[in-house]
């Protein structure tokens, strides 16, 4: 692949008062990748995602989408470029039925009505919703189905990049496996960046894993190497080796 990576950050910083939740992150993600972001609580994963979509304005640094600086763009403009996000807290239209949820996501693409209807039905199929589920208000869905509904909205919006913040949180193993399938479908046309804790999930999906710690990129490697990495083990297990990597 030539040309700039699909997404890159340069020295991205987000401060809340005196706390730097994201503290100089340089991240490069190539088109077509499934990238996993891991890190203990408070590592800055969700904040980083919100900075990428300008739900938070970065304090400093740059976000580059295919080499284009996103600085100053409103959240909806970033979405229009093709950067879709599922926040950690599910965000769906609770009082509208699932089909309308999906339709609203596809509507923005400016398709013809018949094409849009096809996209909606195809998406419902991809997330495995039957007619009964599709015509139910989203508020009445189970937890896992809400997550899938939101993933369906991302699918229908046909993004270039999908940012997924903990898509399998609170799911059973079977539900997690189904989510893996949905994300693979998403990856067929989009680059996927996903924050997760579930190791099996990561092993099934990610080619490369980036570890965040205290707002910084700690390491970036394949899952095998990450699992073997002593420092990563330490921070996840909370061993007192702060002194050793505080100097890094």
């Amino acid at each position: 692949m030539s040309g700039p990576p699909i997404l890159a950050t340069r020295g991205l910083v987000k401060r809340f008062g005196g706390v730097a939740a994201v503290d100089g992150v340089d991240l490069v993600v190539n088109a077509g990748e499934i990238r996993c972001l891991i890190g203990p609580n408070g590592a800055g994963k969700s904040t980083l995602f919100k900075c990428l979509t300008h739900q938070h304005q970065p304090t400093s640094g740059h976000v580059l989408f295919e080499g284009r600086d996103l600085q100053g763009l409103a959240t909806h403009r970033i979405a229009r470029l093709g950067i879709a996000i599922k926040n950690q807290i599910p965000s769906i239209y609770a009082n509208l039925d699932v089909r309308e949820n999906i339709r609203l996501a596809g509507l923005r693409r400016g398709l013809e009505k018949r094409q849009l209807d096809r996209v909606v039905e195809l998406t419902l199929d991809e997330i495995g919703f039957n007619e009964r589920l599709a015509s139910q208000p989203a508020a009445t869905l189970s937890h896992a189905h809400r997550q899938w509904c939101e993933l369906g909205m991302l699918l229908a919006s046909s993004p270039r990049i999908a940012l997924l913040d903990e898509p399998t949180a609170g799911m059973t193993r079977e539900e997690m496996l189904k989510t893996v399938d949905i994300i693979k479908r998403l990856n067929a046309s989009a680059t996927v960046i996903v924050v997760e804790h579930d190791l099996e999930f990561i092993a099934r999906l990610a080619q490369r894993v980036t570890v965040l710690h205290r707002g910084k990129v700690l390491v970036e490697d394949t899952m095998d190497k990450i699992e073997a990495n002593e420092i990563v083990r330490d921070i996840y297990l909370g061993r007192k080796k702060e002194a050793t990597h505080a100097e890094r």
């Binding site: 959240t75 909806h76 996000i85 769906i92 239209y93 609770a94 909205m153 919006s157």
Partner: peptide
């Protein structure tokens, strides 16, 4: 229903 979701879908609320 949800300003945040609409914005994230690309609608200028």
């Amino acid at each position: 229903e949800s300003e945040l979701r609409s914005e994230l879908l690309g609608y200028d609320i």
